[in-house]
Computed example of a mutant assay.
Amino acid sequence: MTKPGRPAGPAAETETLVLTAALELLLTEGAVALTPQRLHAATGVARTTIYRHWPAPRDVLAALIAVAPHEPSAPSGDPVADLHAEVDLLCDRLRDKPVGAFLRALVTASAGDPSCTELRLRYVLDLLEPFRAALRAIGAHTEAAVAEGATLIAAPLLVDVLLLDRPVDRARAHRAVDDLLARITA
Rank of each mutant, 00 (worst) to 15 (best):
P75Y: 03
T49D: 03
R136G: 07
P79G: 13
A186Q: 15
R175C: 11
L39C: 07
P69V: 11
L23S: 11
A22W: 02
V67G: 04
L181Q: 09
A63H: 05
A145Y: 00
E71P: 08
T43I: 05
T43R: 07
P69T: 12
T28G: 01
G139W: 05
R136Q: 08
A150S: 13
S76C: 05
A8T: 10
V159P: 01
L125H: 13
E71N: 04
A150L: 05
L26M: 09
L61R: 03
L61A: 08
A63M: 07
A105F: 05
A85E: 12
G30A: 08
R132W: 06
H141R: 15
V161I: 03
P98S: 13
V146I: 14
L89M: 07
G5K: 09
V99I: 10
K3F: 09
L180G: 05
A81F: 07
T108S: 09
A144N: 07
A144M: 06
T49L: 10
T16E: 15
V107E: 04
A145E: 13
T151M: 03
A63K: 06
E118R: 15
R6K: 15
E15Q: 15
R170G: 06
R120S: 02
E24R: 15
A176Y: 12
A137G: 04
A22Q: 06
A133V: 13
P7Q: 06
P7R: 14
R170T: 14
R6W: 13
K97T: 05
A46C: 03
E118K: 14
P10R: 04
R170Q: 14
A144Y: 05
L119I: 11
L103A: 02
Y123Q: 11
V67R: 14
D88A: 14
D82R: 12
G139D: 08
L25A: 13
L83F: 05
D59M: 04
L164E: 13
A109P: 10
D96G: 06
P167V: 13
H174N: 06
A56T: 14
P4W: 08
A147P: 01
L119Q: 12
H141V: 08
